[in-house]
């Protein structure tokens, strides 16, 4: 009954959807690792990134894959402002405050975007839309391959940045022990702003890749992917980037499998069913170490 070609297709689509989740979850995880806060409004940065890309594309018409860098740069700036104005004042207060603040941000950013760009569904066309590559029994649009390559490149870049540069080492130090990092002379507030900005930039990259691959978008598209990304980092263990990658792939594949076998409506529910099962068995997530 299980057709190998269909299975391959599900896995392939899953990896493609997983790329978006991985990028979102990685950014969220980076922010969580350094600042120990959770930003439920992360998907709104994905949405802003998508709109910036689309706007530049509509005005100039240059290759949307090139705009990804501009979009990321813009989101570093926006992320820094949001961090400074919204998240810095509540650092170290109750954990519920982060949830409340993010919910407020979700509404403000969504409605702001709806005022600026309108709330209609839009889409942009990729220049490579027509091209596809035959791989085995499948015909793979080249856009999807580009997306996987770009995602891998971003993750490798982040890895090198965290391991090889001084700032990256400072970031890891802050994430391991904030007080200790302060004691050895690291400006943790600068690291906060930077990691928040980078997290947002990665979300913008995810948003850009999402719209360039031909998906429709509107100002409200970000909330569900962001909450799923958060479910992914809980699944993988808070603060664990390998966990985010494995969780993202798992979610992408499980969602597409569920959509194929049970119908499209189960797409969202399946991710939460997985999350609940994992949390009931292992309350700290698959790769998490401690509960708090």
């Amino acid at each position: 009954m299980v057709d190998f070609g269909i299975l391959l297709q599900i896995v392939f689509w899953g990896v493609y959807a997983g790329c978006i989740y991985i990028l979102l979850a990685t950014g969220l995880n980076l922010i969580f690792g350094v600042m120990k806060i959770v930003n439920f409004a992360h998907g709104e940065f994905l949405m802003i990134g998508a709109y910036i890309t689309a706007t530049i594309f509509f005005i100039t018409g240059i290759n949307p894959y090139a705009i990804i860098l501009l979009s990321m740069l813009a989101l570093i700036a926006i992320g820094a402002v949001v961090e400074r104005l919204c998240f810095r004042p509540i650092l170290g207060t109750g954990k519920l405050n982060e949830i409340f603040l993010s919910i407020g941000l979700i509404y403000i950013i969504q409605n702001g975007a709806a005022i600026i760009w309108g709330d209609k569904w839009q889409s942009i066309k990729s220049p490579y839309q027509e091209i596809s590559v035959p791989v085995g029994p499948l015909n793979i649009p080249i856009d999807y391959i580009i997306i996987m390559v770009v995602t891998t490149a971003i993750l490798c870049g982040l890895y090198l940045f965290l391991k090889r540069t001084r700032t990256g080492r400072e970031m890891r130090a802050t994430s391991q022990n904030r007080k200790g990092a302060m004691l050895v002379g690291i400006n943790v507030e600068r690291i906060d702003i930077l990691s928040f900005g980078i997290g947002c930039a990665i979300a913008a990259a995810a948003g850009t890749l999402w719209v360039v691959s031909g998906q429709v978008f509107n100002p409200y598209m970000g909330s569900i992917p962001a909450i799923k990304a958060f479910a992914i980092i809980i699944l993988g263990g808070l603060g664990s980037i390998p966990g985010a990658i494995i969780g993202g792939l798992l979610y992408g594949i499980a969602e597409n499998g569920a959509a194929y076998y049970f119908g499209g409506i189960w797409k969202d529910a399946i991710s939460f069913i997985i999350l609940i099962i994992v949390l009931v068995i292992r309350p700290t997530g698959l790769f998490g170490e401690s509960g708090d």
């Binding site: 959770v38 954990k95 519920l96 949830i99 909450i227 958060f230 479910a231 809980i234 991710s271 939460f272 069913i273 999350l275 609940i276 949390l279 309350p283």
Partner: peptide
Amino acid sequence: EWFLAMVTFG
């Protein structure tokens, strides 16, 4: 906290 929030949301 977040774990609870996510599960109830789910």
